[in-house]
Simulated scan of single mutants.
Amino acid sequence: MTPFEQLPYRPCVGVVLVNRDGLVFIGRRAEDRNEPVDATHAWQMPQGGIDEGESPEEAALRELYEETNVRSVEPLAVAPDWFAYDLPEPIARKAWKGRYRGQMQKWVALRFTGPDSEIDVHRPGGGKHKPEFGDWRWERLGRTPGLIIPFKRPVYEKVVAAFEPVLAATR
């Protein structure tokens, strides 16, 4: 078995979806997800793997649709760096068949241009994808690190630092 510290990171994308009021989409993880979360830390922004041959921007659009049903967006910014987090080792050994120690994420900010009714976390991707979220809301970006599962918090702090100036400039 490969030592945990030598496992690679899974290449992923994270999405900061911003509404007209400068608030960001957060979803509460679906209750049937096998992740160690409590009610306070069950919230996160959309994220997911980058497919072979796919750019982070393409992955962001695909993942956003697959998790929220949203397609009405305009690009705002891409984080200049990749942000990584490690899963706790027992979880990492089960997730993704133990091939990765965590995720290396490229974050993309998108402006939501549609009506809130376009968001459908219960039938995402036109009903073709299993729901990732059981509920959703708009939230201030700066509050998101306190809502995320603690092992992902440092990444969310970097996301806030990278995108707060972008959000401030677009208000």
Rank of each mutant, 00 (worst) to 15 (best):
V155Q: 07
G48P: 02
A39G: 06
S117T: 15
T2G: 10
A161K: 00
P46M: 01
V108R: 00
F112P: 10
G14F: 10
K158Y: 01
A79N: 13
Q47G: 14
V18L: 03
P80V: 06
R28N: 09
A30T: 09
R171W: 11
A60E: 10
F112E: 01
V70R: 09
H129L: 08
S55Y: 10
R140P: 05
P90L: 04
Q6W: 08
Y85P: 10
F151I: 14
W136F: 07
M104I: 06
I50E: 05
P36I: 07
E139S: 13
V78W: 10
D116W: 00
A161V: 06
K130P: 09
G102R: 08
F112V: 09
E35K: 03
M1T: 15
N69Y: 09
F163H: 01
R33S: 12
N69S: 15
I26M: 01
H129N: 07
W107K: 00
A109P: 13
A169Q: 11
F133E: 10
M104F: 00
V37G: 01
L23M: 13
Y156V: 06
Q44I: 05
L64F: 06
K158N: 06
L141H: 05
V159F: 02
V15M: 04
K158V: 00
Y85G: 04
A77W: 08
F151A: 07
L17I: 01
R137D: 10
Q103I: 03
P11N: 15
W82L: 10
E57F: 07
T2D: 09
E67Y: 03
K128C: 09
P56Y: 05
R143G: 02
D38G: 13
A79Y: 05
S72C: 02
Q6K: 15
G22W: 09
L76T: 09
W138M: 06
M104T: 02
G22T: 08
P46C: 01
L167S: 08
P3L: 12
F151S: 00
V73D: 00
D135H: 08
